[in-house]
């Protein structure tokens, strides 16, 4: 956990550096282009794994993610990956803890379908491949305490972008010096609905039969299709004069696996703060 905290501190310094060192870019419209987004995330996770417990474990996860993307007047393409670590718990006759390490990965391909006011408002639609892989350790579940699972979903996705601009006068925002100039802000909202949902996780017996001498925790994992997953995110972009941007994201991701007896229910409320570094 300490490493994550150090990472967040370093990232915050990096962010402040970017904010205070704005130089005007010669680029005409830097709302479009290639970018690398480096972000810190805070995730409030709820999970219930009926294979081992009817109780909902809740807790915060911390981590970071990296995204490589391209946003043009017509296309919106991005891939991202991230890592979160944290502890969830439930309080009953005692406090039961569950530690997890979560890997996130996404790929999005969207094409502009409609726009208004010379692109100030547009709607893009396309495909979104969203993945999640996790390792959870819950000592209360005895031989079933360690689990690996992966959820991968192909979504149909739609995104609304609203671009606004305003003239910034020179001044200070908190302790950050603000230069005068035209500032661009973008707000977007994206809803992803599942086309194909798959879950790879422990099957009926839940644990591997390790009586053959090999403790292979993946041996009893099975791939199942079905279930339900929804994802909704809202992003706020603040473009800096040097072409980089700050992005604040709220993401809600909830899923339920198809497997009736060992069903997994998961909910994520994520806040992601990142700096988008312009690559062209």
């Amino acid at each position: 956990m300490k490493r994550v905290s150090y990472g967040i501190v370093i990232f915050s310094f990096f962010l402040l550096g970017q904010l205070s060192a704005q130089e005007k870019s010669t680029q005409a419209d830097f709302r479009y282009g290639k970018y690398l987004n480096v972000a810190a995330l805070l995730d409030y996770q709820s999970s219930r794994d009926f294979g081992v417990s009817p109780l909902v474990y809740r807790g915060f996860h911390y981590g970071g993610m990296v995204e490589l993307g391209f946003e043009g007047p017509r296309w919106d393409i991005s891939i991202d990956g991230g890592l979160g670590v944290g502890e969830s718990s439930v309080t009953k006759v005692a406090i039961f803890n569950s530690e997890s390490t979560v890997f996130y990965y996404n790929a999005r391909f969207l094409r502009k379908i409609w726009d208004k006011d010379e692109g100030k408002l547009d709607f893009r639609a396309g495909l979104h491949l969203g993945g999640y892989a996790a390792q959870r350790v819950t000592p209360a579940f005895l031989n079933a305490s360690l689990v690996w699972e992966s959820i991968n979903t192909l979504f149909a996705t739609g995104k609304v972008n609203w671009r606004i601009s305003h003239e910034q006068s020179a001044g200070k925002f908190l302790f950050i010096r603000q230069r005068e100039g035209l500032r661009h802000i973008k707000l977007s909202s994206q809803l992803s609905l599942p086309l194909l949902n798959s879950v790879w996780r422990p099957d009926y017996a839940y644990i591997d039969d390790f009586s053959d001498g090999d403790a292979d925790i993946f041996a009893n994992n099975k791939l199942n299709f079905g279930g339900l997953r929804l994802q909704w995110r809202t992003d706020a972009y603040y473009y800096l004069l040097n072409g980089n941007a700050l992005r604040l994201t709220y993401l809600w991701d909830a899923q339920r696996s198809a497997n009736a007896i060992n069903r997994l229910e998961l909910g994520h409320h994520q806040m992601v703060l990142g700096i988008m570094i312009r690559l062209n």
């Binding site: 081992v52 009817p54 209360a140 579940f141 005895l142 079933a144 017996a205 644990i207 039969d209 009586s211």
Partner: peptide
């Protein structure tokens, strides 16, 4: 004891285990 015991939790938090295999 030739069945591998699993593990799980009741709604009140108590933990249980029982055999889920046979040899």
């Amino acid at each position: 004891g030739l069945g591998i015991p699993n593990g799980g939790q009741l709604p009140n938090g108590w933990t249980y285990r029982f055999s889920i295999s046979r040899t």
